[in-house]
Design a protein around this nucleic acid. Structure first.
Length: 489
RNA sequence: GGCGACGUGGCCAAGUGGUAAGGCAGGGCUCUGCAAAAGCUCCAUCACCGGUUCGAAUCCGGUCGUCGCCUCCA
């Protein structure tokens, strides 16, 4: 079955055909590292993590490039203040200190969320020569012009400018943007290189004097360097479709005389109910309505945040609420319970083919999951197939017929591979990797044995006490015909 | 004003022509010393209006509403 992708460039679902058989180059716009990441960033990068995981699971050799924007860009035209410089001043730190701090913070957060690192995480600051070279090419070809030490892209020279976002320059609301430095030939032209004012700290030498690169050129230059002039997939957040993504295309295709990305995948924003009337608005740093990844992880396990992200299709906006995250949490419990029960039964299961009639159901689960994912990475539908599968698994494992190891292994592999490797919402063990955890597990097992004796003697006061006290400590017991299961928060 | 996305049960949400997946919450039942877990079961006709069609949540037109982008933003 072929993979289909909704290509924002052209707005239609297409059969995916990589440039080179079996290999995929993908570029995703990364963060500007001037503050901690929030759940909006998490939605985006978890989504592409899922995409890359699925591509790899499908057998593709994927080269995943995601930039780190560390050259700083203006907060608003009016003040002309650089975000990184602003933060540096606020924290009384060197700009590159800020950049390094939040780059590490970003990777820490993504690691914690189970987001596999990109193969290459190029820094914009480390690729200024490449950017200058591309700007020079654009000037040579007549697509850009220099004014007072700044260089601008001449939008009128690019006949298909606007093809990604379906915009016409003349139809945009020009009044929105007050031009402070009105040296551009047209208000729609955008900066490739900006002259550095005397107080601007982040600055580099260039053929046009000291300055710093425009916001869009880094992605064009770095994508070209690591993926080539033309590559397969370009990803990012829908909120950057214009101007950022549009400008990337304009620069790259003008400079390279080649198509840029063949497929554009853009992720819907994460919204938060407005405090005033509850209408959803985009989570963003500037509105102050964000929840940092670190804060979210202090309350919810990463798997739950991932499952929450997969509650809607990646291209749709999702509203963050306690209700929604709770639903994800409860849904995760159900999946994880079945996965744990499977592992538990594998410990004592007989060899043999008891219950092998279920193998057909296992194959169906794989097929359903695959067709959901191949249909434009429909993770919510894929999760639904796992939930349906789980209902049947629970019926099987809670039935009276003992299940053989072969069947249990097959069930286990579905959870481990589809839920674990692909979606990253299930873990292969209950942890217990360090000595403290092992000791804790041993102690709990001991209490369970004592409680079992008490129950045998109908000493329910003691047995209930053990269960209640453990519950208060965050350890839940679950009595089953074949013994007691436990889990810790 | 322009561009784009969207409006499906109490909540989240899949579904792009053949009579509504899944999760959460809620009711009933089974199992259980009790509890938990699990299973079974009940709960919608898809914002509104008009049209196309044998047949539409799904296509076309219109209306209302929400969000995003057009300025830094994943």
């Amino acid at each position: 079955m072929t993979l289909r992708i909704f290509n924002v460039l052209g707005r239609q679902k297409q059969n995916f055909q990589p440039l080179e058989e079996g290999r995929i180059g993908i570029y995703v716009c990364g963060p500007t590292v001037y503050d901690v990441a929030h759940l909006g960033h998490a939605k985006s990068y978890i989504s592409f993590d899922m995409v890359v995981r699925w591509l790899r699971f499908s057998g593709y050799d994927v080269l995943y490039v995601q930039n780190i924007t560390d050259v700083g860009h203006l907060t608003e035209t009016e003040t002309g203040e650089d975000k990184i410089l602003k933060q540096a001043r606020a924290l009384q730190a060197k700009p590159m200190q800020i950049v390094e701090t939040y780059t590490r913070s970003y990777f820490d957060d993504m690691d914690a969320l189970g987001v596999q690192r990109p193969d290459i995480s190029p820094r914009a600051s480390g690729h200024v020569p490449e950017q200058i070279k591309m700007i020079e090419e654009l000037i040579d070809k007549g697509f850009a012009y220099e004014v007072n030490g700044s260089v601008y892209f001449d939008v009128s020279e690019d006949e298909d400018y606007g093809k990604l976002s379906n915009r016409r320059v003349e139809e945009q609301d020009e009044g929105v943007r007050e031009e402070v430095r009105d040296e551009k030939r047209s208000p729609a032209d955008f900066a490739l290189w900006k002259r550095a004012e005397p107080d601007h700290i982040l600055r580099w030498d260039s053929p046009w004097g000291e300055g710093f690169p425009g916001w869009h050129i880094e992605c064009s230059a770095m994508a070209k360097k690591y993926l080539g002039a033309t590559f397969d997939i370009h990803g990012g957040g829908i909120d950057n479709i214009f101007p950022h993504n549009e400008c990337e295309i304009a620069q790259s295709e003008s400079a390279n005389d080649a198509p840029f990305a063949n497929y554009w995948m853009l992720v819907g924003s994460l919204n938060v109910p407005d405090a005033f009337d509850g209408t959803p608005v985009k989570m963003s740093k500037s509105l102050g309505n964000f929840v940092s990844v670190k804060d979210a992880l202090s309350v919810h396990r990463p798997e739950v945040i991932r499952l929450f992200t997969f509650s809607a299709h990646y291209s749709n906006p999702v509203t963050y609420s306690e209700e929604a995250i709770h639903a994800a949490s409860a849904g995760w419990e159900r999946l994880n319970n079945a996965y744990r029960l499977t592992r538990r039964q594998m410990e004592t299961a007989p060899e043999g083919d008891a219950g092998n009639g279920f193998l057909e159901r296992v194959e169906k689960a794989r097929a359903d999951f695959t067709s959901a994912m191949n249909d434009d990475f429909n993770a919510p539908k894929a999760v639904a197939t796992l939930q349906e599968f789980t209902r049947d698994v629970n019926s099987l494992l809670n039935g009276t017929v003992p299940v053989g190891l072969e069947t249990l292994r097959a069930i286990h592999d579905v959870y481990a591979e589809l839920g674990g490797d692909v979606l990253g919402i299930l873990r292969p063990t209950d942890a217990a990797v360090n000595t403290d955890a092992k000791r804790e597990a041993g102690l709990i097992e001991l209490l369970i044995q004592i409680r079992a004796d008490a129950r045998k003697n109908k000493d329910f006061a003691t047995s209930d006490r053990i269960r209640d006290e453990l519950s208060a400590l965050g350890v839940t017991l679950e009595d089953r015909p074949d013994g007691t299961l436990w889990k810790a928060d």
